[in-house]
Amino acid sequence: MEVEPLPHGVTSSKVIGLLEYLDDHHGKEDIYKLAEAIHYELGELLSVIKMGEMLGLVETPGGDVVITDLGRKILKSKVAQRKLIIREQLKKLMIFQRLIEALQKSEEGRLSKEVILEELSRLLPHENAEALFKTIVNWSRYAELLGYNHDAQTLYLDEESFPAPPQ
């Protein structure tokens, strides 16, 4: 499986907002109509849809966007449960698998931002590594998969997802 970048600037609130909208419209909407209805630039909307698709929450047959069963499950879930579902979905993405592997191989499960940016540039040479890093941090924090300390500029494995082994 190849490493795919995450669409820039898409947040969990936007993806869940998309699911809310679809749920109000019998689970399905034409992409152009949707962009018009919510006053979104088409490109921006396509990024949100792409992220939703990568997480298995929507599908895009023809020119439509359709909510999946997992997407409906998210809407019925409480805030904490939503994070768990997203965490499991993020873990399936190659980009997170590569970063988790790198962090697990590191001392103390943490790496500097600089090292991560180099790794991202190697994996996805055509991407803006800085923007991608920001998006990765945002999703990782939301799902409590990886943490990032801005003062120390380090990315680390979140204890919620990677509990320390008993001493």
Binding site: T11, S13, K14, V15, I16, G17, L18, E20, Y21, I38, H39, Y40, V48
Partner: peptide, 11 residues
């Protein structure tokens, strides 16, 4: 907030 985010936050 943008329209999709406000949908989420209202809920």
């Amino acid at each position: 907030l943008d329209p999709l985010t406000s949908l989420t936050l209202r809920e």
